[in-house]
Design a protein around this nucleic acid. Sequence first.
DNA 1: GCCCAGGTATAAA
DNA 2: TTTATACATGGG
Length: 279
Amino acid sequence: MRSIELLKTNFGIKIKGITDLDLAQTLDCGQSFRWVENNGKFTGVAFKRQVDIYFDNDALCIDNTTPEEFEKIWRKYLDLDLDYGKIREDIKKLHPVLEEACAYAPGIRILRQEPWEALCTFIISQNNNIKRIKGIVERLCGSFGDNMGNYFTFPDAEKLSELSPEDLAPIRAGFRNKYIIDAAVKVAGGEVDLEKCRTLSYDDARAELMKIKGVGIKVADCTLLFGLHRVEAFPVDVWMKRAMEKLFPDMTADDFGEYAGIAQQYIFHYSRMHPDIFE
DNA sequence: GCCCAGGTATAAA
DNA sequence: TTTATACATGGG
């Protein structure tokens, strides 16, 4: 992001010069499940901190944080140093439909979430809907995360690895409970190395994650994209499969290039908002 | 009641 | 290697 200006406020910080960011498109689009919106203000927890994020005119405000913490956490989390305008220019050249999709939701950014949280929440996401996923994640944090007063942290793999699937009954994740525990045991025990997935080849990183029971290609790709910022990962769910067949019959995931995952998010959002294209 | 939800494991063809 | 079915839960 070119020349952003950071100011302190009574509540936290204010940043001028932010472009290519829409909070609803980014925080409430099914890549993260811990953000709650009211009146344009988004409250959420990441990296054990809770903040409120909102726009005051064109200034991005983050309450309950400091400039130091912004530099350490939120600047990265919101991916503010990647030039999405430039990336969209590249993506648009791939296909005319992508021009429209990019123009429709130009404020999407790929969050840099914590890998374990991304893995865990996308295990929960399988054969599930976003509203219920959010509820399960909330109960998971409330039951097993650290109590920070107003909120709970996301429970780490070590904590969950000590539990049994039956212990997770209160979160009501159903058959996914055993998958969550298997993931926790393998991650906490080092059998699955999430950090290594940053440098492994795409195929090897997928295979590393798929050692976990309940992790298939879709969950692996979502973890790589949203938790490890592997933007070449291109998650394909049932909806995206339909969108691909209808909108890009002549293309495969490989044709979307190094920013395939970002293109996928534009396509996903666009097609969700235009279900009529499938008629 | 029935259907589906940002899928995957398992068994069978 | 590809295709069908169960899986827990809850909202529409």
